[in-house]
């Protein structure tokens, strides 16, 4: 071993180096410790059989054991799964509607400044409107049924979707657009084949964030109740509140982030599959998407002829050119 090597091995080992790497196992262990600490604190402040012994009273905060004891009640009597799915369906429908309306508008606004100016007041209004104040108003327009919940999510999200799409499109470098133009693409092709695909990673990122937001908004719409039972997690919280069941409220509050986390992981897995240039990996979803795009293109080329002079290209012509190039490339350097 050389001197310099032994010096390296003697380098003082620091605790907590900035941006130092840790193994996956220690990362998981630390996270578990964090959860355990929270539960231990919860247990500590709510320990004791009678109210007077407890640091925090059972009405404000039931003990962990009491909370989880109501799980079966929540699961069977309150139909937790069905209500979770009801909530999810509303968010997904409302959010999809916002995406279907907002993304095309955002693409137009990001591509054409006049459209951006046209939509700017709407976006400003939509983003700054107090969402909670919107809930009662939507009853007047859309009643108290499913439609109201879905449209509330749509209204709450659509301005954000338009704004974020516009930003993502604007963030695509001008050099990509210039490249597309010098390769003969028209404006429509420049938007659909260059701007939109290159804006997708940024757009998907902000949509994932917005979906989390929408999941929070739906609680608002579900827990403000007029008329009959409408179902959903927000409604469960409301019902538990009325019956004075603190334990169930806490349990639902614990379940919601877990559901949100699982959805987020699913969306992230899709993101990883679609954008290997950002997240590494093989991009299995991108490969599928490209394949679909190819097949659509194949159908198109059955109906449209190439624009001149590229309509002259044939497989035979290419083979002939290949032979020609192969012949000259060896002595290509000694041309003169």
């Amino acid at each position: 071993m050389t001197d310099s090597n032994s010096q390296v091995s003697q380098t003082r080992r620091r605790w907590f180096p900035i941006r130092g790497k840790i193994s996956l196992l220690s990362s998981i262990l630390i996270s578990i410790a964090s959860v355990l600490f929270l539960f231990a604190t919860w247990w500590f402040v709510t320990r004791g059989e009678i109210v007077e012994q407890r640091i925090v009273g059972p009405f404000a905060l039931p003990s962990p054991a009491e909370t989880f004891a109501t799980f079966s009640d929540l699961w069977f009597d309150q139909q937790l799964t069905r209500n979770t799915l009801t909530t999810l369906r509303r968010v997904v429908l409302g959010f999809s509607l916002a995406a279907v309306v907002g993304i095309p508008l955002g693409i137009l606004a990001g591509s054409f400044p006049p459209v951006k100016s046209l939509l700017a007041p709407l976006i400003l209004f939509g983003r700054n409107i107090p969402i909670a104040a919107l809930v009662p108003l939507t009853y007047f327009f859309f009643g108290v049924a499913e439609m109201q919940k879905v449209l509330f999510i749509f209204l709450a999200c659509v301005a954000f979707v338009i704004a974020d799409t516009t930003t993502s499109i604007s963030n695509v470098g001008q050099q990509y657009l210039d490249t597309a133009y010098t390769l003969g693409s028209n404006r429509w092709q420049a938007i659909t084949r260059v701007l939109v695909p290159l804006a997708m990673p940024g757009l998907f990122d902000s949509l994932r964030l917005l979906f989390g937001l929408a999941f929070g908004y739906i609680m608002l719409a579900e827990s403000i109740k007029l008329g009959g039972e409408t179902g959903g997690l927000g409604n469960l919280i409301n019902a538990a509140q009325k019956r004075g069941l603190r334990t169930q409220i806490y349990l639902i509050i614990l379940i919601i982030p877990i559901v949100a986390f699982l959805i987020d992981r699913v969306l992230f897995a899709i993101q990883r599959g679609l954008f290997p240039h950002k997240y590494g990996g093989g991009g299995w979803l991108l490969v599928i998407v490209r394949d679909i795009a190819h097949r659509i293109g194949d159908v198109k080329s059955m109906f449209f002829r190439p624009t001149p002079p590229y309509d002259q290209l044939t497989l035979e012509g290419i083979a002939a050119a290949e032979r020609l190039d192969g012949g000259t490339s060896d002595d290509g350097r000694g041309h003169e």
């Binding site: 597309a180 390769l183 003969g184 693409s185 028209n186 092709q189 084949r193 190819h294 293109g297 194949d298 198109k300 080329s301 449209f304 002829r305 190439p306 624009t307 590229y310 290209l313 044939t314 497989l315 290419i318």
Partner: peptide
Amino acid sequence: FGLECHGVSRKIREE
């Protein structure tokens, strides 16, 4: 990409 924009069929442009 350029050939695709000009509507050249996939077989020819990939060759």
